[in-house]
Simulated scan of single mutants.
Amino acid sequence: MILTNTYRLQSWLRSSGACLALAGAAALSPADAHAAPAAPAGTSMSPAGHRFDAVASGPIVFEAGPITVTCTASESRAQTGAGAYNTIPPGPGNANPQGPVAVRIKAPVFKDCSTDAPGLRVAIETNENNGPWQISLQYGKPSTARLSIPAGGFVLKTSGLLSCTVTAAPDASTTAQGHWEAGSGSALTMEHAQIPVKIEGSFFCPTSLTTATISARYAVHNTTDPDHGITVDPA
Rank of each mutant, 00 (worst) to 15 (best):
residue 163 S to V: 02
residue 176 A to N: 03
residue 126 T to P: 13
residue 178 G to K: 03
residue 158 T to R: 00
residue 144 T to Q: 03
residue 135 I to S: 07
residue 132 P to N: 07
residue 156 L to V: 04
residue 174 T to Q: 11
residue 129 N to M: 05
residue 126 T to M: 01
residue 143 S to G: 15
residue 117 A to L: 15
residue 155 V to F: 04
residue 177 Q to N: 12
residue 166 V to C: 10
residue 145 A to G: 15
residue 169 A to N: 13
residue 162 L to N: 10
residue 132 P to A: 11
residue 130 N to Q: 14
residue 173 S to C: 00
residue 115 T to H: 07
residue 146 R to V: 05
residue 150 P to I: 02
residue 130 N to A: 14
residue 121 R to K: 11
residue 133 W to Q: 06
residue 148 S to Y: 05
residue 153 G to S: 09
residue 149 I to Q: 01
residue 157 K to P: 10
residue 131 G to F: 06
residue 117 A to E: 09
residue 150 P to E: 08
residue 134 Q to S: 13
residue 136 S to R: 14
residue 140 G to R: 13
residue 159 S to W: 00
residue 154 F to M: 12
residue 131 G to Y: 05
residue 131 G to V: 04
residue 127 N to Q: 10
residue 127 N to L: 01
residue 158 T to D: 06
residue 122 V to W: 04
residue 123 A to Q: 12
residue 159 S to Y: 02
residue 148 S to K: 07
residue 129 N to T: 12
residue 140 G to T: 04
residue 156 L to K: 01
residue 132 P to C: 02
residue 170 P to W: 06
residue 164 C to G: 11
residue 127 N to A: 14
residue 167 T to L: 11
residue 175 T to K: 07
residue 115 T to R: 10
residue 129 N to W: 01
residue 150 P to Y: 07
residue 156 L to S: 05
residue 156 L to W: 03
residue 129 N to H: 09
residue 162 L to A: 10
residue 170 P to L: 08
residue 172 A to P: 04
residue 174 T to I: 04
residue 178 G to N: 02
residue 147 L to K: 04
residue 174 T to A: 15
residue 160 G to V: 01
residue 117 A to N: 12
residue 172 A to R: 15
residue 120 L to Q: 11
residue 155 V to E: 10
residue 177 Q to W: 03
residue 175 T to A: 13
residue 140 G to V: 03
residue 177 Q to K: 13
residue 168 A to V: 10
residue 149 I to C: 09
residue 131 G to I: 05
residue 136 S to N: 11
residue 174 T to H: 03
residue 136 S to P: 04
residue 152 G to S: 07
residue 165 T to K: 15
residue 118 P to L: 11
residue 137 L to W: 05
residue 172 A to Q: 13
residue 121 R to I: 00
residue 146 R to K: 11
residue 164 C to T: 07
residue 165 T to G: 11
residue 175 T to I: 09
residue 151 A to W: 01
residue 161 L to A: 10
residue 131 G to L: 08
residue 129 N to Q: 14
residue 156 L to A: 05
residue 132 P to W: 06
residue 125 E to R: 15
residue 160 G to R: 01
residue 127 N to P: 12
residue 123 A to L: 06
residue 146 R to G: 06
residue 154 F to K: 04
residue 146 R to E: 08
residue 146 R to N: 14
residue 120 L to A: 11
residue 175 T to Q: 14
residue 149 I to G: 00
residue 151 A to M: 14
residue 166 V to I: 15
residue 157 K to L: 02
residue 166 V to N: 12
residue 143 S to P: 12
